[in-house]
Design a protein around this nucleic acid. Sequence first.
DNA 1: ATGGCCAATATGATTGGA
Length: 263
Amino acid sequence: MKIATWNVNSVRQRLDSLTAWLKECEPDIVCLQEIKCQDDAFPREPLEALGYNVAVHGQKTFNGVALLSKLPFDEVTSGLDGGDGDVQARFLEALVSTKDGVVRVVSLYLPNGNPAPGDKYDYKLQWMDRLAAFARKRLALEEPLVLAGDYNVIPTADDARNPDAWREDALFLPTTRDKFRALINLGLTDAIRATSDAADLYSFWDYQAGAWQKNNGIRIDHLLLSPQAADRLTGAGIDKHVRGWDKPSDHVPVYVELAIEPR
DNA sequence: ATGGCCAATATGATTGGA
């Protein structure tokens, strides 16, 4: 089965691109971020018409995450534990049943954290701690688990065309990378890095300053796999060409192939 | 990573993004 993640930067602005990409990529499950609308404004019908079940955790103006799945959802849960008043819609978890057993998938939108230091950076670091606590709990279930989304983390200097330009940025500060590495070290596998050591693997190019034309990108959208998912990893990729479409998101889809029969 | 953008909002300026 194929599982993908894409920060669409407004699902309503990206609907034509999203449906075109779904037809081309044919993913079984899609994790969307920055849908930038409330649940009742989410374009369910055109996506259901393509055979997807839809789960939405929306928010007005900012943030918002969703899941599309060709398989029915057994369970859907929104929000990350430990929030205590956190109203930002950044986390949606679902469980599906396949011919080969259950698969757990999370669509997450980790806070940007700029400017750092400051309140926004503190929120990012706390969110990363909450995510690690969640991952530790779910890893104990020993299920195929895919934590997919926009992490707003450049893991290493190899994940940026111009790493020096990011030294003071919340996406690349040492503390940010330390916490991401600690998450990986709980026993998760970064699917792109597990399948390729190629340079220039990016998932985001800024709208500004000709970043796309110069290939001045960064890799910040990740699919992290539990051992039970990693054992079944047969491929991973980045649909870079989508950045060249009309009215693009600044992010492109990233996906994994798992040796799991959907049905 | 700034010269250059984009999306949402009772909207024509401001906020947030990365």
